[in-house]
């Protein structure tokens, strides 16, 4: 009875319904998200009392200037960019055939199994997966055991290990949008291309890839931005490798310089904003 009365009251009041629907998410986005980011931005313009180690509200551009001019930050930024780009490319190279198989070749039963196989690792703890890779990469780990007979050796802990581990971690985030993209390409179009004389390669490059390009870019946003901010993987399998994330972590922790950490973390934020602006026009944001 009451439910009916509420419905009757709300039915003609469009604005009220909208307000009821949006208040909570707008508060969440506004307070928790935007305010937190703004606070970060502001912190970057503060400083730390060298004597007490306390953050002092004293406006300065010192941190920003340091981040922009110190060679260390330029090197680490370039390295982080390189690692993120490499991880993204590797993931796309692996994800496209896998997603194609899932969407176009596998029978429904197999397809469901593969979707589950892709998503299952997301339930496992991030730390467990990274430590698993630490074990794989170690001097007497699985990789060493597999390649030693051929005269190879494990890449060990370093940039290669970081790239491999990050590629593994973000692969599901790249496969799923591309799988959805392939799924949206009707089989009829592949047949039409073949009917008009197109062989497999032509069909792939002239029909399929242009149609799934937004999906590939959507996947790349995940792999790229997640790699850009990562610090745990680098710490565990990166050896002495420094990325922007580890610099932030060190400055918050051992160096106890929150304003500098905030200034450093503005770098990946700036990069990802540029990246999003660049891909905005491809329609990729609509396939996320």
């Amino acid at each position: 009875m009451t439910a009916t009365r509420v419905s009757t009251y709300l039915a003609p009041r469009r604005r009220l319904r909208l307000a009821g629907l949006l208040t909570a998410p707008v508060l969440w986005l506004g307070l928790v998200y935007v305010v937190a980011l703004a606070a970060l931005l502001i912190t970057a313009f503060w400083t730390v009392d060298a004597f007490t180690g306390q953050v002092r509200v004293e406006w300065t551009t010192e941190n920003i200037v340091e981040v922009l001019t110190e060679a260390l930050y330029r090197t680490v930024t370039l390295r982080t960019l390189g690692i993120a780009a490499l991880v993204t490319v590797l993931d796309i190279i692996v994800a496209v055939p896998v997603a194609f198989f899932m969407a176009k070749i596998a029978r429904p039963r197999m397809r469901h199994l593969l979707v589950i196989a892709m998503l299952a690792p997301l339930w496992a703890s991030y730390l467990v997966k990274v430590y698993a890779w630490r074990a794989l990469l170690s001097g007497n780990g699985l990789i060493e055991w597999a390649v030693a007979p051929f005269g190879g050796e494990t890449p060990g802990y370093g940039i290669v290990g970081v790239v491999l581990t990050l590629s593994y971690l973000w692969l599901p985030y790249v496969v799923m949008p591309i799988y959805a993209g392939f799924d949206r390409v009707p089989d009829r179009l592949l047949e039409a291309s073949a009917d008009l004389g197109g062989r497999g390669w032509r069909t792939l490059t002239a029909v399929v890839l242009p149609m799934i390009r937004p999906a590939i870019i959507a996947g790349s946003i995940f792999a790229f931005s997640l790699s850009l901010g990562d610090y745990i993987t680098t710490t565990i399998v990166g050896g002495s490798t420094q990325m922007l994330g580890t610099l932030v972590y060190d400055n918050v922790g051992s160096a106890n310089n929150l304003p500098l950490a905030a200034a450093i973390s503005l770098i990946p934020i700036g990069i990802i904003l540029v990246y999003l602006a660049a891909v905005r026009r491809t329609g990729a944001l609509r396939s996320l």
Binding site: P186, L189, A192, S193
Partner: peptide
């Protein structure tokens, strides 16, 4: 084709 299958 029945549904034309034009390249969108």
């Amino acid at each position: 084709f029945q549904d034309y299958a034009l390249f969108p």
